[in-house]
């Protein structure tokens, strides 16, 4: 008997992607009885599910963000371990996106689907690298699913920041970063480039930076930006959420250079519209070469493309002999527009 086609046991429902033989949702965007969560970003991990299965790091992130609303029962599952839900075997493989991020590997009656969540392929000192898992259907994101998106080496981008700091020593560099993942990666990369002065952080970054340090990611000395005087901030680097960098919060800083670390910074007009003076092209999402290489590495005959520029990646994949189609999931990708 041949294995059942994944279309027969996975469905898109208003709540999100639903697995029938396991009676659970993957990354539901509204509360459900049972959820498998790939990672802690808010468009994947929502509060108030009855039961949640995720990596221990993702659960810790959800507790830090949602406190008592993180969910009813929170069940950890390490990378590589297996758990049976209903008739379905569930396991996690690293996705390389942020700390704790995982691809959900679902197997039922000899048929295997990998829901990769969000992922990237390049090195990130804050989380383990993406591992390709052979499967029948690979579900991929397409946030940067256009061939204009080729993220440069992040070392070059970090050195741009340090060069600008040297050129404008009397100004404060305020770097817009998403609080989960990007903030800690930028800090780690600065440290790796030899920057050992204290870094100043916006209050919204504090809890997750503390959590990363508890989980063993070394970030060096961090100081609260809000407690420091304007004079102390001269010549310093400050990290803050993207919404704060060009708004009233930033007025406390000394003639700030507005920096934003995001994959969208690849397109100059996007950076200019946001009033960014120093764009850093750094993303936790796969760029076009990584997306296409991943489809080849995973080698699944069938590909479902979720959020982003689905049409272009579907077009490319079909041209390469994959069976590819778009899979529309409500509510996905809203956060990426802002912070990827």
């Amino acid at each position: 008997m041949s294995a059942p086609h994944p279309e027969t046991w996975l469905q898109t429902r208003p709540e999100g992607l639903y697995c029938l033989p396991g009676d659970f949702f993957v990354d539901p965007h509204r509360p459900v009885d049972r959820a498998v969560v790939t990672h802690g970003h808010a468009d994947h991990a929502r509060p108030n599910n009855q039961a949640v299965l995720a990596t221990p790091e993702t659960l810790a992130i959800m507790r830090a963000r949602y406190r008592e609303q993180a969910g009813g029962s929170l069940q950890p599952l390490r990378y590589g371990e297996r758990e049976r839900i209903g008739e379905v075997e569930v396991s996690f493989a690293p996705a390389g996106h942020v700390l704790g991020s995982a691809q959900a590997v679902l197997e039922w009656r000899g048929s295997r689907v990998v829901i990769s969540g969000d992922y990237k392929r390049r090195r990130d000192p804050t989380c383990p690298a993406f591992e390709p898992v052979p499967c029948d259907v690979f579900v991929t994101e397409a946030t940067f699913g256009l061939p204009v998106f080729t993220h440069p080496d992040d070392g070059e981008e970090i050195r741009k920041l340090l060069t600008s700091q040297a050129l404008f020593p009397e100004r404060t560099h305020v770097v817009g970063v998403y609080a989960l993942g990007k903030a800690q990666r930028v800090i780690c990369r600065l440290r790796e480039e030899g920057y050992d002065r204290p870094l100043y952080i916006h209050g919204a970054l504090q809890a997750l930076c503390d959590l990363y340090q508890e989980l063993g990611v070394v970030l060096g000395e961090l100081r609260p930006a809000t407690a420091s005087s304007k004079q102390e901030m001269v010549g310093q680097i400050v990290l803050a959420p993207p919404s704060a960098i060009a708004d009233r919060w930033a007025r406390r800083l000394s003639d700030p250079v507005v920096v934003l670390a995001s994959g969208w910074m690849r397109v100059r007009q996007r950076a200019k519209q946001r009033g960014v003076e120093l764009p850093l092209v750094m993303s936790d999402h796969a760029d076009w070469p990584e997306l296409t290489r991943t489809l080849e590495d995973v080698g699944a005959p069938e590909v479902w493309v979720t959020h982003g520029s689905e049409e272009a990646l579907v077009h490319w994949a079909n041209g390469q002999g994959f069976r590819a189609r778009a899979l529309s999931l409500i509510g996905r990708g809203e956060e990426e527009q802002e912070v990827a």
Partner: peptide
């Protein structure tokens, strides 16, 4: 050098010819 459909979507997204070509040119 580039698939015409992919170029068209990209140009629509970026909006500037020089920049689209600079970004999409296969390395």
């Amino acid at each position: 050098r580039v698939d015409p459909a992919l170029f068209r979507w990209s140009y629509d997204f970026v909006g500037d010819l020089a920049e689209t070509v600079a970004l999409i040119w296969p390395a």
